[in-house]
Each structure stands twice: as structure tokens, then as C-alpha cells.
Design a protein around this nucleic acid. Structure first.
Length: 568
RNA sequence: GGCGAGGUAGCUCAGUCGGUUAGAGCACACGCUUCAUAAGCGUGGGGUCGCGGGUUCAAGUCCCGCCCUCGCUACCA
């Protein structure tokens, strides 16, 4: 049986997440996972923080905190963000704490080496004796060999724009400490991407059905690929296996290499916690698995080529990604999100004034599927209005009417007497959308539209039937109509559950539904006489409340005005 | 510089293999309705499809050139 292994790009444990990240790699994945699960699929949703790398060591040192504590802080902080937004992984961990992460990473390295996909190369790099480490190009400053500018960076000169090799800089020094640097030879391991491409990955990439915004980019990348270094001289990370030929201490696996292996080790953690230490193999090495990587476009090279190459190079029947729904970038009111400049929406402030479930809907409805898109406060206002007017108001107008005129219970339904009205609802009030189909096709904006479309269909039905008129002229028929309307709203709750889980639960309960709405399956058989009516006749309604609050213009103006204020 | 993506209604965006009069939502205008969160339903106005040329019976769609926006350019994850 097919099973789905869903991942979201591991966030780097060095700063907060903002709505741009959420809209790109996390919320769509969560909605996908919830939808498929509600449709009965077997699915595992894994994520955790990416916790190695030099950027983390520098930030931790600057903060005067041990590396492990620094990443734990961000792991908890980011985990809290997901929790607040109801983004729920089956397992949330991190690459420095998943119990077998080091073991898996070393094993990946060993097998790649044994299978002939690693090469060693020695090259000069700039070494800081004062800091006791080699420095990445971007952490080096010095004189530009082209224009003489004194503060050129190791990768690029900000004045003349030339591309630079850090070794060409005049009097190179550390950007942080200003300490002078020396050339020193170091030997590193490289992943032989050209070889992996020629054996299998090139054809795999060329034949895969990528999203149209991904295919040209990825094919160009694969064509020009070079071997890529996978080790670094530093202390924080997964050490090289000691049984490596010509082993030298002091080297760790480069963070980009061990990070995606986190998907595997975190899966193994979940399995082990359930008493099945070898269960990860079923998820990673069975042809029945569909591996789905959600990510932002910055991660396309890794998930579309490099990590698949690492998996293939194991020769252990690892599955390669089945789908890589890569989203573009998400901006805020016309500019990039920038935490340092205050051009962001701080989560605590947002939660104090707004509803995270409305944010989920709006982020989904505006998600950067095919092109960059943006958060607009007016758009958020409009989305809240759509939810309140189309869904919330449909519920209250129908349910309050039932409460007043039908003893607050789901009225009875006579299939024969009600057949014409059922047919009218399902066939004459507009096309029925299926948000689930759109979600499966990674068309999240369409899924949000389909949700509203189905709510509108309910409103059309109520308007055409006018139960307030029928009540006086044909009370029995009015009850049939109300029965159908309540059942339709109960289905709306089921469609809504992956996007706004809490609201959907409230809506379900208002209709008299028992248990968790996410356990009620997906609406199906929406044809006259079909089994699409989930609530038994006679069920008492739950408490009826307004589901969604709308924003007025002054709130929107205040939010817009708050942008760009540096964080206090 | 190189590579890639994009430019369609006031706003956000669809538009399949070239094929009827270029679509949707929001916003706006008018009408209907009064059950409901001043909500709902219906109708309508609104577009030189970035600019110029070409191919074709036919171009938003294919080809060439130009303008503009954005991203990447690999040891930053």
C-alpha cells in the first residue's frame, strides 16, 4: 500500500521564522498532510531544525552560549511558532539531538566513499591562527585586487562588483576579529556529482515532472555541476568516521551534507520511540513510499539534485523524491521580510490581535506557488471577510434558523419527498469544488478558492429555497431544505479541517457533529441519493457562535503603520 | 556579465495543444432579499494581454529584438 513520507525543509536553528517561511515550506506541507490523512492515507510528516554549521557557532559565541544550548533555544522557539500556527509534525527534532543522526550521517559518507562517489582534493584556504579555524570566503575581508577597495569581501567586492577568490585578496583578515590570515593547505572530501549525474541522476532529473518553475533551473544546474566539498575543518558537526582512509581528526561533515540526512534520522527517531528501531527502512527503502519534500526555491538544488544523488549513491534502495513542491518567495507589503529592520510581523503581536487560523487560510490563498507573492494587510482583511461572510455567516444564518424553527435539531429527511431539493443543491447551485484534489496537485490557492466556492454554493441554495418563506407556505418542505443545508455545512467543516482545524471543529460541533471532524473522512458521494450527509437526523445542534471576526479599516491601517518599526 | 523566472482588469492572479466575444475573486455600480456576523443572491461597467517586428487562415499563447521587475551565480545555510 502506498505511504506518504512528507518533509518540510529543516529550518536553520539560528533565528526566528517569519510568515514567508511558513507560506513556502511549512503550511502547505501541513495542509497536505492533514488532507491526505483525512482521506485515509498512511502518512508521516517529519521535521526538525538544522543545527550545525559555522553560522551557528559564530552566533552562539557572540551570545556567549554553548552551541548545544543555542540550537536548543531556537529549536524550542521555532517549534513554538509551529505550534501556535497548528503546524503539527509527527516528530519535531533536530540534527544535533536526533539519537542516530551522527550514525546515519557517517554511514552515508562511508557508503558513498565505498561506492566510489567521493574524491579527495587538497587546496589552500585562508586560516586564522588567532581563531584557530579556516574561514569561509564571506567571512574574509581584504583589499580588492581589481579596484583596490580596502574592505572587499572574500566572495565579492562591494565597490566594483567583481567576483573574487578569497586567496586573491590583498592582506586578507578576519571580518569578525580583524586578525591577519595565512594560506594553509587543507584536504577535503568532495561529492562526485558529475559521476552521480552521469550514472543516473541526470536522466532522473531530466525525466521527472517538475513544476514548470523548477525544471529549467534544475536542468541547467545539473548540466554544469562540479564536485562539491562535503567536509569542513571545525568542531561543531558530525565528525568524519574514524575508519575513513587517511583519517584526519578535526574534520566534520559539512552542514549541507548532514542536514538532509536529518529527514532519515528524525524518521528513525519517531520509529524508535514507537519501539520499532528498524521501522525507518519501511519509510525510506520501500518502493511503496512516496517521498514529498516541501521547500522554498532556495532549496531546490539540494532537494532536486544533491540529496537525491546522496540517496542514490547509497545503493541501498533508498527512494528518491516523488514530488518536490517548491514554492517561490513570499514578501511583505512589497518588500522582503527583514527581522532586523522590523519589516516583519512578530508572531506574539500577531497572535495578540489576530486569529492564527485566518492567517493559515490567507497564507494558503496567497501562497507563492508559481511566482513570488506577498502578504498584504488588506488581503488579510479581505480573506477574513470571505471566511466570515461566506462560511461563518452561512453557518449562523442556517443554524440559528434551525434553532428557532426546528427545535434546534437536525430536521428529518425523507429521501423521496426531498429528492428534488437534494438534486437542486448538488446539481443546480453551482459546481462543487474539491479542495482535496487541488491540494494533492499542490495547487493550494485553488484549494482555498474551492473552499469559498462550496460555501457560496450553500448560500445560493439557501437563497433560492428561501426557507423563511417556505416556513409559512410549506413547512414540511422547509424542514427538508434545512436538513440539506445543515448537512452541507457539516461537509464544509470537513473540507475546512485541513486549513483551519480549530474552526472546522467548532463548525462541526455547531452542526451537532460528534468527535473530531478530522476523523470524519473526506466528503464523497456528493450525488442525489448518495451517502454525503454525515449528521444523523434528530441530532441536537451545538452552541452557535460567530466563527470568524472581520477587521475594520483602522486595524488594517494600524498594522501597516507598525511595519518598519525596529524591534523594541 | 551568465543563467533562470515573470510583466494579462483598480488590486491579487487563472489562461491546457495556437482556435468562438480573454476569465475568476476582491473592489466598484445597480437591482432583489431580510433567515444571518450591515451578512446573502443576481446583473453590469472595467483590459492596446510590457513595447516593436515576424510566422500563421488564426497569436495572451510560437519565433526575433528591446524595456522593466525579481531570483540564483555553489563552500552562507
Amino acid at each position: 500500500m502506498t505511504r506518504y513520507l512528507v518533509t518540510s525543509a529543516l529550518p536553520y536553528a539560528n533565528g526566528p521564522l517569519h510568515f514567508g517561511h511558513i507560506a513556502g515550506a511549512y503550511l502547505p506541507a501541513d495542509v497536505y498532510a492533514r488532507t491526505l490523512r483525512q482521506q485515509g492515507e498512511e502518512l508521516l510528516f517529519v521535521c526538525g531544525t538544522d543545527e550545525h554549521g559555522v553560522a551557528i557557532t559564530q552566533s552562539a559565541e557572540q551570545a556567549g552560549v554553548a552551541y548545544a544550548e543555542w540550537v536548543a533555544r531556537w529549536r524550542d522557539q521555532i517549534g513554538g511558532t509551529f505550534e501556535a500556527l497548528s503546524i503539527r509534525f509527527d516528530v519535531w527534532s533536530g540534527t544535533s539531538v536526533a539519537p542516530r543522526h551522527g550514525e546515519f550521517s557517517k554511514e552515508f559518507f562511508r557508503r558513498l566513499n565505498r561506492n566510489g562517489y567521493l574524491v579527495r582534493q587538497t587546496a589552500d584556504q585562508l586560516y586564522s591562527a588567532a581563531e584557530g579555524q579556516f574561514l569561509a570566503d564571506r567571512y574574509v575581508v581584504g583589499g580588492c585586487p581589481k579596484c583596490g577597495y580596502e574592505k572587499a569581501r572574500g566572495d565579492e567586492c562591494p565597490r566594483c562588483g567583481s567576483w573574487l577568490d578569497a586567496l586573491e585578496l590583498i592582506e586578507p583578515r578576519s571580518r569578525r576579529s580583524g586578525a591577519p590570515l595565512e594560506r594553509r593547505a587543507t584536504t577535503h572530501w568532495y561529492l562526485d556529482l558529475p559521476k552521480l549525474r552521469d550514472e543516473h541522476l541526470g536522466a532522473w532529473v531530466a525525466n521527472k515532472d517538475w513544476k514548470p518553475n523548477v525544471a529549467p533551473f534544475l536542468n541547467a544546474l545539473v548540466k554544469d555541476t562540479l564536485p562539491r566539498a562535503i567536509t569542513r575543518d571545525m568542531a561543531w558537526g558530525v565528525p568524519l568516521p574514524e575508519d575513513t582512509p587517511d583519517y584526519e581528526p578535526g574534520k566534520v561533515l559539512y552542514v549541507w551534507f548532514d542536514a538532509p540526512i536529518g529527514y532519515v534520522s528524525i524518521t528513525a527517531q519517531w520509529c524508535a520511540e514507537r519501539g520499532d528501531p528498524e521501522g525507518w527502512k519501511l519509510w525510506w527503502q520501500s518502493p511503496d513510499t512516496r517521498l514529498v519534500h516541501f521547500l522554498g526555491k532556495d532549496n531546490i538544488p539540494f532537494h532536486g539534485f544533491v540529496f537525491p544523488a546522496m540517496l542514490y549513491g547509497q545503493k541501498q534502495d533508498y527512494v528518491l523524491p516523488w514530488a518536490v513542491p517548491a514554492n517561490e518567495f513570499y514578501n511583505l507589503e512589497g518588500k522582503k521580510f527583514s527581522t532586523s529592520e522590523g519589516w516583519t510581523i512578530p508572531l506574539e503581536a500577531f497572535l495578540a490581535r489576530h486569529d492564527p487560523e485566518v492567517a493559515r487560510f490567507y497564507l494558503l490563498a496567497s501562497c507563492p506557488e508559481t511566482a513570488d507573492s506577498e502578504w498584504l494587510w488588506q488581503g488579510y482583511q479581505s480573506a477574513a471577510g470571505q471566511l466570515a461572510d461566506a462560511i461563518g455567516n452561512l453557518a449562523t444564518r442556517v443554524l440559528r434558523f434551525v434553532a428557532k424553527n426546528a427545535e434546534n435539531r437536525v430536521p428529518a429527511f425523507e429521501p423521496v419527498a426531498g429528492a428534488a431539493d437534494e438534486r437542486f443543491l448538488l446539481e443546480q447551485c453551482g459546481p462543487i469544488g474539491d479542495p482535496g484534489e487541488h491540494v494533492r496537485g499542490f495547487r493550494f490557492r485553488r484549494a482555498a478558492e474551492a473552499l469559498i466556492q462550496n460555501a457560496t454554493l450553500g448560500n445560493v441554495f439557501v437563497d433560492r429555497m428561501a426557507p423563511w418563506t417556505l416556513r409559512k407556505q410549506d413547512p414540511e418542505r422547509a424542514l427538508l431544505v434545512l436538513h440539506l443545508a445543515v448537512q452541507w455545512i457539516a461537509n464544509l467543516a470537513r473540507w475546512l479541517a485541513p486549513v483551519c482545524p480549530g474552526k472546522a471543529q467548532s463548525l462541526w460541533a455547531m452542526c451537532g457533529g460528534q468527535g473530531a471532524v478530522a476523523d470524519q473522512g473526506w466528503p464523497a458521494d456528493l450525488v442525489p441519493g448518495g451517502a454525503w450527509r454525515p449528521i444523523p437526523a434528530g441530532t441536537p445542534l451545538g452552541e452557535i457562535t460567530a466563527l470568524f471576526r472581520k477587521l475594520d479599516d483602522t486595524e488594517v491601517a494600524a498594522e501597516q503603520a507598525a511595519l518598519g518599526q525596529p524591534p523594541s
